[in-house]
Amino acid sequence: MDDLLRELVRHYKYVIYALLMVIGLYAIIAKGHLVKKIIGLNLLQTAVFLFYLSIGRVKGGTVPVLWEGDGAPVTPIYENPVPHVLMLTAIVVGVSTTAVALALVVRIHRAYGTVEEVEILAADEDEADEPTGDAGA
């Protein structure tokens, strides 16, 4: 138990990102509100961003900006910039996904008059029961 706790504390970053991820997944699965699901998705993605950034961390490292010859006696230790760059891209991707998701939710709201999953499914089922000339759902 003690060891486990120590492990957890030592790897607190992983604990945090795992927690965030689980919260995100929980929201996606358990929430019926379409926007809340999107928030869950964002939490999930953010957890992964944090994970990446924690990879790039170097103990005692500093901002990876070139120090030009000011006569510093030691070359500074840089943090690994690559994960940051990667996450910059991933964040853009995440924003785009969110944008598309929100756009879809707007349209869903207009088409169904609701953004609750249960109500949408019920509306679809009602429609399937009606003998319309349209394609079967």
Partner: peptide
């Protein structure tokens, strides 16, 4: 064409993004 498409797209978005996030991880 049909409004079900919106919900189908949304569902795929949620599931697909989880999948993509897993791949990223």
């Amino acid at each position: 064409r049909r409004r079900q498409a919106l919900y189908a797209g949304y569902s795929y978005l949620i599931v697909g993004s989880i999948g993509a996030t897993f791949i990223l991880l």
